[in-house]
Design a protein around this nucleic acid. Sequence first.
DNA 1: TAGGCCATCTGGTCCT
DNA 2: AGGACCAGATGGCCTA
Length: 238
Amino acid sequence: MAEYSSDLSAAETGLPHTLTGSTPMSAMEPSSETPAAKKTKRYSRPRVRCRSPTVIQRLKKTRRVKANDRERNRMHSLNHALEKLRVVLPASSFPEESTKLTKIETLRFAYNYIWVLTETLKMNGKMQEYEAAGLPNPLPTHHNLASGHFTDAEVKNESHLVDYSSWIASPDNTTASSVSGFESNSDESFMNLDGIFPFPDQLSTFPMDMSQPFSQQSILPYDANNVPFYQPYMPFSM
DNA sequence: TAGGCCATCTGGTCCT
DNA sequence: AGGACCAGATGGCCTA
């Protein structure tokens, strides 16, 4: 019923429809009414407002200003949410990384962070399966972590955990290619945040050579059937 | 200076 | 009808 619209329709402004709104042109075509209906309507109050071009221009401008204001606020709230996400990411706990993550980096990092946490939970589930089956725990226990005593298998598996951390922080060719099951990522736009991903506190005491790239110290953990714990897939990249 | 990132404006479309 | 959402355009700022 754009005919009665108080909006700045094409009928009001004389401008092409595409410039004035989304009301279909067909909606502005006269409807087929009975003569009786037309008669009653003739004396009804005109619903198409007569506005001078100046008024129309002023209305358009105020609406545009309001729309701009809403859009600005919308983007601000979006950025605010992005900032909240940015600060909970591990990267934010390294002040020396002065350059804050860009928007796209924040989203990529968040995706990969969630990914590695999910993988960690999966691995934890595997550990419980081992325990239930009466098999030796392939991963370091909290007791071992506290005491600093580890078996070779524990060292290897633990280093893989760390490798996952390294992977999400820097899934570039060098790191990725050395991790079994991971494909190289040739996308140079993928974020490169070498070394800024921290591991959990209990892992930070792990006695391994932190001066070496994690990827050179790790192997994939395998279960009793020689199947890797992880089913590697590519973390998010664009 | 080119390229990346960002904020803002703008018009179109969809939804309530 | 008006607001939300979206994508394209534009210009400013910064850095390699």
